[in-house]
Design a protein around this nucleic acid. Structure first.
Lengths: 251, 251
DNA sequence: ATTTTTATGATTGGTTTTGATCGTTTATGA
DNA sequence: TCATAAACGATCAAAACCAATCATAAAAAT
């Protein structure tokens, strides 16, 4: 087994288990303790893992504290503005898909009173939707660590059983030729399925997402209307506006 | 089990139960008293917990479910006892269905560290399961007002795509001849489906549920093991114990 | 072909963690 | 109140873990 291969396996084990012992790693890889220790020190130097006595653990990144972390100042206002604009596209009687993520969650309070049916793959969304008295369906799926978004083949299959008038998605990268991209392929599949089942698709994205390309492809740029705030370069704006509708909200 | 892993488990137990005894921690971790004591002093120095004679408690007030009107001391202890007993039936490698509702939610902290796969129709469950690092799947369904349980035909269909070693359900009525009953027919269908897909089924119920009959029928009394606390009449006990396994936990 | 570099497993000696024991302190209830 | 049981802290030897070193073998460079 190659060094790099082994180290990737270690990262894989960690992603699955959060913490693994040196012994476990030795068994999984067939390598000696010495080798594993060397790997661990190396991975720690690269800031990929944290060593603990007896094994290693993932770097503790602060998990979702959206109410605090995101609510800091400007970012929140931006998201609210985007959500408000997005909500204007919703009409009575619509069936809507709301993607997991904080951008789309902002839309929920604005749905109050409208007679719509919402389908979502975001667990936190469900609680909020119910609170606002909105008819809500949830799709099957594996709950993703951290965000609690429902993903995987079960999620994709479940989406196929619905038809939406409109879907609203968050995204990580928007690029004229590379289209919409996101880091997790499994999430990309779900977004893809949602777009496919929708009459019209809307992407909610702040200006930092423009020009970015992430790992997994979701759709071509023509396949969705983009809703964002002002702050994108005129160059970007021109390139993209040629290909699809670009709704720019001024804050 | 690694030191850090064990300490996180302790915090996990505390988050769920507010207060835990040294003995409980020893059992949950398999470590000796000495080790646990050392962990507790260390965690106390880090200001993460407060030690009390016989165990430890959280410092901070817990923010959990405010919608629990039945958080009156006695009721809570009862539910915890039932959940603890239920958790003893779970083995490594099991695939488990956890029904929506507060009884089954109490089981989640006790799953920490076990390698199980959980499927649930309870939205609040998902958040907690993820926090405890448990592999979690959610079924499709319509989110019910109030409890956010996923119900309806979509939910039933989604359950049929899984096979469970064990399922754990809450219930409203237990009656020797009328079997298990619950007020909402749509929820009854979901419970029914879960039992059908399970090798073994467990009903979690406090003594007040015995002798009651609710609107919608879920299953016959023989179809599940009942877990409850002492407090049911000997008459009830006899009648039901003849028909199925009855696990009575003394509080 | 030879040297250099790199990766590996074994060994050694020092450190940390652990479980058992023991005398002391704290709760409980007769 | 007193006796008993449970919980506690301190201590110690054993076990597990770790960093450093060395020799070997494979890979890369010369």
């Amino acid at each position: 087994m190659l060094t790099i291969e082994r180290q990737e396996l270690i990262i894989g084990l960690l992603k699955a288990k959060e913490i693994v012992s040196v012994r476990q790693i030795c068994e999984s890889t067939g390598a000696s303790e010495s080798t594993i220790r060397r790997d661990l020190t190396e991975l720690e130097n690269k800031q990929l893992i944290k060593r603990v006595h007896g094994g290693a653990s993932l770097l503790k990144k602060k998990l979702e504290e959206p109410t605090l972390l995101e609510k800091t100042a400007q970012f929140q206002i931006e998201k609210e503005a985007i959500a408000s604009k997005a909500a204007t596209f919703i009409e009575d009687g619509d069936s809507i898909y709301l993607d997991a993520g904080t951008s789309t969650m902002q839309m929920i309070p604005l749905l109050q009173g409208k007679s719509v049916v919402v389908v979502t793959n975001g667990i936190p969304h469900v609680q909020l939707l119910i609170e606002y008295g909105i008819e809500t369906y949830v799709i099957s799926g594996k709950a993703k660590k951290g965000t609690a978004a429902l993903i995987g083949t079960k999620a994709v299959d479940a989406i196929k059983e619905f038809r939406f008038d409109k879907c609203f998605l968050g995204i990580n990268g928007i690029h004229a030729s590379q289209g919409f991209t996101t880091p997790d392929p499994e999430e990309a599949n779900v977004k893809q399925a949602a777009i496919k089942q929708s009459q019209a698709s809307f992407i909610l994205a702040d200006p930092t997402k423009f020009g970015e390309v992430s790992f997994a492809s979701v759709a071509n740029i023509e396949n969705a209307t983009i809703i964002t705030t002002d702050g994108i370069s005129t160059e970007q704006h021109e390139k993209i506006a040629k290909l699809t509708t670009l709704e720019v909200v001024s804050q």
